[in-house]
Amino acid sequence: MYPDRVEKRGVAKRAGIIEVAELAGVSRQTVTRAMNDMPGISAETKKRVLEAAEQLRYRPSRFGRELVQQSTRSLGLVVSDLANPYFSELASEVAKVAIANEWSLVVMEKHPGPESGKEELRALADQVDAAIAYADLAAPDIDSVFGSLPLVLLDTAEQTLDALSPAHPRSALTIDLKPGLGQAIDHLVAGGRSRISLVDIHYPKGESVRSSVYTRLMRERGLEPHVITIESKDDDLAVGRCAVEIALRAPTPPDAIIAFNDLSAFGILKELKVHGVSVPDTCAVVGIDGLRIGVYVEPELTTLRLDFAAFAQLAFDCVVQMTNAPVSKPLPQIRKHAAHQLVVRQST
């Protein structure tokens, strides 16, 4: 660890411009010039400064972070859609954890798509000390956008994690779907259901993991899987309504539907009511997420609940471990997992 770094309130003091100048053997003014691509220094000196900044994980801020207390740290949170209650509930819990640990929080909304928001993400990475992100980017783009920033990726595909450059270790927090989906299927079977369909959303990057997990779980129980695949839409409620239209055209409609998420489950409930299908008597409905609003729909939604508070704490714990790592060693690459819990309500 750099000799001038100290620990305070469980957080290592981050290296500043003075430490970079000392390591590079230059003045503070030279560091400023190098980091801001200003004239007046040689290419060799600039290279030495940038290498020292990389080694110390120094991240300058155009907002003058050098003027604030060194114990204050900033965390970036990247989500897909703050209008979606899933992301707003998660952001709320991350904010609570950050405030309790005296970190400031910057929230950015990145719309789905591997080409969207790259420049905005780079700007965010320049302003924060670490980030927690839903980032549907290819592995090379993750490395080019976030650089050496300590980064915790949320619910990212294993193949993407495996393809990340070892030069910049990343941490990841994933959701293990198997325990929760297994609970849901067993609950439905115990209630006499046998024609259990899953609603899946087809994204450009491919099929969701839940489809393969669901199919395996169904076959393990001697049941025939049936996946209703809907093309990606901006409106998850519409996904649910489209799924019902497809399900009811089948020769033998399902007697239970596991939705892609809670929002699509709300659309399913609405469309089943429009078609005069009784829930849960004729068709049971299960959501995934455990949104608070699930108790305010009719009937109240049975769901696979994610503990947002625990999920946020797990992600923040990864951030702390990464930012406290000695600069003389690579960032730790942490892998943690969360799982859903079945919450039974009126829709089953």
Rank of each mutant, 00 (worst) to 15 (best):
M1V: 10
Y2I: 05
P3L: 11
V6A: 12
E7L: 13
K8V: 14
G10Q: 07
V11M: 09
A15E: 09
A15L: 09
I17R: 10
E19T: 03
E19L: 00
V20K: 06
E22P: 00
E22W: 02
A24E: 06
A24Q: 06
G25I: 03
S27E: 01
R28V: 13
R28D: 01
R28F: 01
A34E: 13
A34I: 10
N36P: 02
D37I: 05
M38Y: 03
P39V: 00
G40Y: 08
S42Q: 09
T45I: 14
K46L: 07
E51M: 00
E51Y: 00
A53I: 00
Q55C: 04
R57I: 03
F63P: 02
F63K: 08
L67E: 03
L67N: 02
V68Y: 07
Q70R: 13
Q70A: 13
T72I: 11
T72C: 12
R73W: 04
L77G: 12
L82T: 00
N84Q: 06
N84K: 09
E89C: 01
S92K: 14
A98S: 00
N101L: 01
V106W: 15
V106C: 11
H111P: 00
P112A: 05
P112Y: 05
P114H: 06
E115R: 02
S116A: 12
G117L: 07
G117A: 13
E119R: 14
E120H: 14
A123E: 09
L124F: 14
A125C: 09
Q127F: 09
D129N: 15
A133D: 07
Y134H: 06
D136P: 00
A139Y: 00
P140F: 07
P140S: 03
P140L: 14
G147P: 03
S148H: 15
S148Q: 09
S148L: 04
L153P: 04
E158N: 11
T160N: 10
T160I: 14
D162I: 07
A163L: 12
L164H: 12
S171M: 02
L173Q: 08
L173C: 01
I175Q: 13
P179I: 01
L181E: 00
L188G: 08
V189H: 05
V189G: 03
R195F: 10
L198Q: 06
D200R: 10
Y203H: 11
P204Y: 01
G206V: 11
E207T: 15
S211A: 15
Y214K: 06
R216T: 15
R216M: 10
L217H: 08
G222L: 08
L223G: 05
P225R: 04
D236M: 04
A238P: 07
A243T: 01
V244E: 11
A250D: 09
T252F: 11
P253S: 02
D255V: 01
D255L: 11
D255I: 06
I257R: 12
F260R: 03
F260T: 01
F260Y: 14
N261R: 15
S264A: 09
A265G: 05
A265W: 08
K273T: 12
G276S: 14
P280R: 08
C283R: 01
G287Q: 02
D289P: 10
G294I: 10
E300G: 09
E300V: 06
L301W: 11
Q313C: 00
L314C: 05
F316V: 04
F316N: 01
V319C: 08
Q321E: 11
P326A: 13
S328V: 07
K329I: 02
P332L: 12
H337M: 13
A339G: 07
V343C: 08
S347Y: 03
